[in-house]
Simulated assay, not measured.
Amino acid sequence: MSTFENMEKLFTVLDVTASAIKEEDNTPYLTALAETGENLFYEELPQDYSTKLKVLLEEEYKKVNVSSYENEEIRKAFQLSVLKGMKEAIQPNHAMTPDAVALFVGYLIRKMKETDKAISLLDPVIGSGNLLTAVMNLLEGKELASFGVEIDETLLRLSWSSANLQKHGIELFHQDVIKPLYIEPVDLAIADLPVGYYPDDETAKDFDVHNPKGHTFAHHLIMEQAMKYVKSSGFGVFIVPNKLFESEQSELLHNWLKQYAAVLGLIELPSSLFKSEAHAKSILLLQKIGEDMVKPKQAMLVKLPPFSNKEALNNVMKQMDDWFKTEWKREK
Rank of each mutant, 00 (worst) to 15 (best):
G214H: 10
P185G: 10
T3K: 08
G148V: 07
A145Y: 13
L181F: 12
D200G: 07
Y182W: 13
N309I: 06
P98W: 08
V237Y: 00
A226V: 11
A20F: 04
K231L: 08
F217C: 12
D321K: 14
P46C: 06
L144V: 10
A102Q: 04
E60M: 09
S162F: 01
S19P: 00
R110Q: 14
H168N: 00
P28S: 02
H220A: 04
I90T: 13
D15A: 08
V64Y: 09
S159M: 04
D208R: 13
M136P: 02
L121R: 04
I119F: 09
H168S: 03
L103V: 06
Y260C: 12
D15Q: 06
E143N: 13
K318P: 00
L286D: 15
E60D: 09
E8R: 13
L156G: 10
V82M: 06
N93C: 13
E58W: 10
W323L: 08
Q287A: 14
S162R: 04
E277I: 04
F147P: 05
W323P: 02
L172A: 12
S233E: 02
G37H: 07
L253T: 06
G106L: 03
L121I: 15
L172W: 09
S2Y: 10
L156P: 12
I109Q: 01
A163P: 01
K288F: 00
L40M: 15
L10H: 09
V177H: 03
L138R: 15
A204Y: 05
E202M: 10
M136K: 03
E44P: 00
P124T: 01
L188A: 05
H215C: 14
L266R: 13
L286G: 14
L313H: 12
P185Q: 07
I21P: 05
K213E: 00
K281R: 11
I151K: 12
S272Y: 09
S128Q: 01
E311S: 13
I109M: 06
G236F: 11
D208F: 13
S250E: 11
L138D: 14
S68H: 08
K281S: 10
A278R: 11
A204E: 00
L14K: 02
A145K: 15
A89G: 03
N137I: 15
F235M: 15
L144S: 01
L80W: 11
A218I: 14
K117C: 07
E5V: 11
N71C: 03
L313W: 14
L156F: 10
F324R: 04
N65Y: 12
A102L: 09
M96A: 08
A77F: 03
E58A: 11
F173G: 05
I109E: 00
A218H: 15
L14W: 12
G127P: 02
L181P: 10
M223T: 12
E143F: 06
A189G: 02
K231D: 04
Q47M: 08
E88W: 05
V105Y: 11
E73Y: 03
V66S: 05
N255G: 03
D201C: 01
K213I: 06
F104A: 08
H210S: 07
T216V: 00
V125I: 04
V101L: 06
F11R: 06
K231S: 07
K87E: 14
L155E: 04
V177G: 03
T154Y: 02
K258D: 14
D123Y: 08
E114Y: 10
K329I: 05
K111D: 01
E171Q: 14
H94E: 00
S128P: 02
